Amino acid sequence: MTSSTLDHTVLPPEQPLDGLLALLTGADAPSATLTGPDGEQLLLPPEVFEVLREVVAAMARGQAVTIAPVHQRLTTQEGAELLGVSRPTFVKLLEDGEIPYERPGRHRRVLLSDVLSYRDRRSLQAREALDRMVEIADQSGMYEQTATSKRTR
């Protein structure tokens, strides 16, 4: 994988990863080592160990994994795909100032970190809105009304 590609996705292997996952889950990050083909052992930095643990856990659940450097620049199409929106919707987010971007030539470029930050902000806003809706429904007694109407049918 090159550091300039975003779409290098690795599918989980066909063989189960339960043993490897158990080993990584039970291991202590500061003492994890990697043994090379020549027997040389290297101490894994805790950050690398945590990434390895997360990758194996995702693959053990049958999920594919994509790894990309955070400083990576994306096209508007790549940014849209990451957010699960259309390219025109993504461009509108850029033009509305929701996500910073550069225009080094004719095309807009966004930092992966800025797109991920926007996604996290939107996710937090959605959770807060849902929490508020539940609070309003609870205060107004809507939960009791729903339960009562189902019993009377």
Score class of each variant (00 low, 15 high):
K150G: 02
F90R: 00
R122L: 11
L6W: 04
M142I: 05
V85S: 02
R106L: 13
A64M: 03
G105V: 09
L94N: 04
A57V: 09
D28A: 11
M133F: 12
E135T: 14
S123P: 00
R61N: 10
Q139E: 14
E144T: 11
E78S: 06
D38I: 01
S31Q: 10
R108G: 09
M1E: 09
T146V: 15
V110D: 02
A68L: 02
R53E: 08
I99F: 01
A80H: 05
V85C: 08
L83I: 01
A27L: 13
M142Q: 10
P16M: 06
K150E: 10
Q145F: 03
E50T: 10
H71S: 09
V110L: 14
L6N: 00
A32M: 12
T5H: 13
E98P: 01
L21Y: 08
R109L: 12
Q77I: 05
A147D: 12
T5K: 14
P30L: 02
R103P: 07
L74W: 01
G141Q: 05
P13I: 03
G84A: 07
E81N: 10
A137L: 15
V91H: 04
T35C: 12
G84P: 05
D28P: 02
E47Q: 15
K150W: 11
R132I: 05
R108Q: 14
S113V: 06
E40G: 08
S113D: 07
M59C: 06
R132W: 13
L124V: 09
P88W: 00
L17T: 05
S140Y: 11
Q41N: 08
H71T: 06
A29N: 01
L130A: 12
I67N: 00
S123M: 07
E102V: 07
P88Y: 00
E81G: 03
E95G: 06
L23S: 11
E144I: 08
A29H: 08
S4A: 06
L43F: 04
L111W: 10
V91D: 05
P45Y: 04
D120E: 13
R151H: 07
T25H: 11
R122D: 06
H71V: 01
I136K: 11
L94K: 02
L52W: 09
F90H: 04
A58E: 12
P16A: 05
L6F: 06
R53K: 13
V65A: 02
T146H: 14
D38C: 01
S31Y: 01
V56H: 07
F49Y: 12
G26W: 05
R121L: 07
Y118D: 02
T33Q: 15
G141D: 03
R153C: 06
T152S: 10
R87C: 00
E102W: 03
T2D: 10
L93T: 00
T33C: 14
A22R: 11
A58S: 13
